[in-house]
């Protein structure tokens, strides 16, 4: 019989998930149920989900995918348009969104991996995908913004007068994504993906069907993003072509790299710290210096790339080593 603890990937993983769950559950209380802060907290959790989902394709499998915002917006558009036009509940819309995103990921991923599109070409084709989706959406719906139903606060519409219910739903999805990350890391799939990320040719020589496993990673990643898209549109209340934001896709990958590819703790920290820093900088300088947070991300990325390619995870290791040596060595 498999113990539940083993299913979670060991005791320490279980404890950290419980600790994170408690901390995230208490955040609205700490923030005094202030609507604006809870909204921001939801945004931070959302980006953390995106980066953790990205970690599966980008961190483990080493494929620099820049289309996370595209898959999320597609799932969100499916769920949001069904709700706005046909009054279909997001409880149905979100799985449909996940399916649509996964379907698109398959249509993109199959030929991409089949024809050996790699490295820079993979990154570019995924960046192009977000722009393509954005233009197609624009051709169909134009630049008008489609609003979610406003005065129907209910669990059926998943629309609330406060942000806490959506925040808690995002927290649950975050915990599931975290669990998936840990599960995958300690499974056959995870070992295969890590091998592909380290050296694809060597992995293939060892008999790993690299195409198939890269496709699995892509499908898991796209499904998570397609699913969470439904909550995203209910959080912002708007469906528009602007959701298909190539910049968000780049930022998610940047956070994953700064966090240290494949390191769950590093990626988690990078997303939380950088997204919170972003809000802080925006509230401080947003009016006078727009985009200052991205300017700082840019500098951080250059520094990490040139000095510490292992990212935050590398810095964590470095500090731990220094502490162990009593701060004498480096």
């Amino acid at each position: 019989m498999v113990k539940p603890v083993a299913l979670l990937g060991g005791k320490s993983a279980l404890y950290s998930i419980i600790a994170i769950a408690i901390a995230l559950a208490l955040i609205p209380l700490v923030l005094g149920y202030n609507m604006y802060y809870v909204y921001l907290a939801a945004q931070v959790v959302l980006v953390t989900i995106m980066v953790l989902a990205w970690n599966i394709i980008g961190g483990y499998a080493g494929q620099l995918d820049l289309a996370s915002s595209g898959y999320m917006a597609l799932g969100g558009a499916v769920s949001g348009l069904l709700l706005a036009f046909y009054n279909v509940t997001p409880w149905l819309g979100m799985p449909l969104g996940a399916l649509t995103a996964a379907g698109l990921a398959f249509l993109m991923g199959y030929p991409t991996f089949r024809f050996g599109v790699k490295e820079v070409w993979y990154a570019l084709s995924t960046a192009a995908l977000v722009v393509i989706l954005q233009r197609v959406f624009w051709l169909i719906y134009g630049s008008t913004e489609i609003y979610m139903p406003i005065h129907r606060w209910s669990w059926y519409h998943l629309r609330f007068s406060r942000y806490e219910p959506l925040y808690y739903m995002l927290v649950v999805i975050l915990l599931v994504t975290l669990w998936l990350n840990i599960r995958i890391k300690n499974s056959k799939l995870g070992y295969y993906l890590t091998a592909i990320g380290e050296d694809e040719l060597a992995a293939e020589a060892l008999g790993i069907d690299t195409r198939r496993y890269k496709l699995y990673a892509l499908l898991i990643y796209a499904s998570i993003l397609g699913f969470v898209g439904g909550i995203y549109v209910n959080l912002t209340s708007i469906v528009s072509f602007r959701m298909f934001d190539p910049w968000l896709g780049i930022v998610v990958a940047v956070m994953g790299i700064i966090g240290g590819l494949g390191s769950i703790a590093g990626v988690f920290m990078a997303a939380v710290i950088l997204r919170t820093l972003e809000e802080y900088l925006r509230s401080m300088f947003g009016a006078t210096i727009p985009g200052i947070h991205l300017l700082i991300y840019g500098l951080l990325l250059i520094v990490v790339g040139v000095l510490k390619p292992e990212g935050f995870a590398g810095f964590l290791k470095y500090f731990r080593r220094r502490l162990a040596r009593g701060g004498s060595g480096g």
Partner: peptide, 17 residues
């Protein structure tokens, strides 16, 4: 390649912003 992309994406974000 991933590191090169990361560094030049950093440069891109810096210049653009």
């Amino acid at each position: 390649p991933l590191i090169q992309i990361a560094v030049t994406v950093g440069l891109l974000m810096f210049l653009r912003n």
